[in-house]
Write a protein that binds this DNA or RNA. Structure first.
Lengths: 343, 343
DNA sequence: TCTTAAATTTTACGCGCGTAAATTTTATTG
DNA sequence: CAATAAAATTTACGCGCGTAAAATTTAAGA
């Protein structure tokens, strides 16, 4: 690096001996210029260290290289992990990820979308809050920007949905628990922040029915994203009341299960499969922390690696082709049984 | 909302009956225009739903309203939580948070800073990777952009540092453990990704010395951010070897402790304070999950709420005043003993 | 060497807004 | 009501780049 500071593309074009429009072309796609031209530019680039002004670029482009990622709650390790994978892929595809968290707040979710709208993203990957989302606002946004909806399905949101097969996953766990012990009770939040919960309850009820067992749903009071706390508090209550209809408990998600396990431990229950155990607990999601609970949590995996990959591929394909999907495709990934010590 | 679509500030100025430069002034600071003018604009705003183009705004402003936030690893709930708090405060201060994670990669950390540089942020809150960071590149960045360094201190990075008082916190826990039992061994990673670990080891060694006890440091092999896994694996090894120099283990951080607790549970140890317990385990950070371990983890809190607040206040003050601090100030927040069941 | 198509350059304009300077309007005071 | 300061407006220009159209150069083949 040497020479005086380059202030804009004009000056950079001068020192590289190329016209400004050609330089502009190079930055939009290096392959689009002749090899000899490319060399000249790249030689100058090494000497002078210039970067085009992002704002000026994006102001004039019809399509930016921005790709929005909106998740409902980033402080949830599940979304943090999925966001991390998506960011990686987006970057290596040459896009600029803009990661926004709605922090569990529907108003902020809409503000995030508004904020994205103003930076003209090429596309958006949206994991909506779900039940409490302002669906009208979301649908309005999706008409403006190519969007792939993931994790939580909102009909009409985006050109495609990529998510978890809650039905299959729930059924699989139910069969496993029943086969190796007794039919479980279902432990969930009364007003879950995530719509997957509803699908899971429905799947539980239907499968139990089909298997000829009486379903038992235990609903935990409490709202918001302090899910472990709710699982712990309500778990403690249920265990102390002795109102558990079954010695096997299938939690709607792992965070709830983590709280429930803490409650069971404190209440002196021995959780697990062994003959000396008085309780079996299973979860759902294969949460990053589920393998460090005591005992380790038997759960059914939420294939967020596949969901992240498919979501990114879908939005990139849509951006590249420039066409919106004629019909809304839905892709569900099956869960896998993660057998550990708790059930 | 009605009327035709507003394409730019020119058109919006027309429908609101105000000149464009005055409208521009309004958007930069609503208080800077006469009340009657403000009313007119806001009435038009309700009718026509117009928002200034972010790119055009930022292109011409010397100072944007962008505020960068860079954390080393967003999938760590600790950073996710601190980022959430910071974002909230930044938004309510009227700025636009740009959250970037370095994913534990020093190259990506530099790329993140480069990326920030090109969007002319008013300021940046930087929690660096630490040991592996490209300190030269970071210092170069800090000369260009007002930066507050938080969590992990890198001398010369930023105008101020806001962090955790590792020395005080370590000392406090050591005294507690010794007073209520025996002097602990110190369990840490051999090559910790976070520089706080070094401060904690030093504090452990010095305090033990001062108290007249022989220090025992157990170093876990393994690199990266899969900290629970390392704690679990190495914990299992240490416990099975029976090489533990003390029945009390002070883990360098909670994630390590979570892994260690899982190992202890599996190895059949009863962890806690009671007479029937064979092991005491303490952590450091008051990690969001530390209260759901079995048994619940005794730890010393990392006051990230205060750290987040102070960091934001510092950078905002710097932005507002427009002056870089004459000298680098360092603020450390004390930890608090969180007595739970594990020690 | 001539032909031809592809790549490049030149020219010219526009994007949407910030901002400075000069001018006009409005509010305040005596 | 006149004088004066404060606020608003008009005018004018610039920011750094995208991009279209026309003119020119380059490379490849006969």
């Amino acid at each position: 690096m040497s020479g005086r500071k380059i202030r804009n593309m004009e000056e950079f074009a001068a020192v590289s001996g190329i016209s400004r429009p050609t330089v502009s072309k190079y930055f939009n796609d290096p392959e689009s210029v002749r090899a000899s031209t490319r060399e000249k530019i790249e030689r100058a680039l090494k000497e002078h260290d210039y970067r085009p002004n992002i704002f000026a670029m994006n102001q004039n482009r019809k399509l930016t290289k921005n790709l929005g990622i909106v998740v409902p709650y980033l402080a949830d390790p599940f979304f943090a992990e999925i966001a991390r994978r998506i960011e990686d892929m987006v970057i290596s595809a040459g896009f600029r990820p803009i990661l926004l968290s709605s922090h569990g707040d529907a108003k902020l979710e809409v503000e995030n979308l508004d904020s994205l709208l103003s930076i003209k993203p090429a596309g958006v990957l949206l994991a909506p809050l779900g039940r409490i989302s302002d669906t009208a606002a979301i649908e309005r946004f999706c008409r403006e920007v190519p969007t792939v909806n993931f994790d939580a399905n909102i009909d009409g949101a985006g050109e495609a949905f990529v998510g978890h097969n809650n039905t299959q996953a729930t059924e699989m766990m139910l069969k496993y628990l029943t086969r190796t012990g007794e039919p479980p009770a279902f432990f969930e939040m009364k007003s879950p922040p995530n719509p997957n919960a509803n699908k899971r309850r429905t799947a539980y009820l239907e499968t139990m029915e089909r298997m000829g067992h009486t379903p038992h749903v235990i609903q935990a009071a409490g709202e918001g994203w302090e899910i472990e706390e709710i699982g712990y508090r309500e778990g403690t209550r249920v265990l102390s009341e002795g109102s558990l209809p079954s010695r096997t408990v299938f939690c709607s998600n792992d965070r709830l299960a983590i709280g429930f396990l803490a409650a069971a431990y404190e209440a002196g229950f021995k959780v697990g499969l062994g003959d000396d155990c008085t309780l079996r607990v299973a979860g759902h999601d294969n949460h990053p922390f589920s393998r460090y609970t005591c005992p380790t949590l038997t759960t059914v995996s939420h294939n967020y690696s596949a969901i992240a990959t498919k979501s990114v591929e879908t939005i990139l394909a849509m951006i590249e082709s420039g066409v919106r999907a004629p019909e809304r495709k839905s892709t569900l990934f099956d869960g896998e049984l993660i057998m550990r010590a708790s059930a």
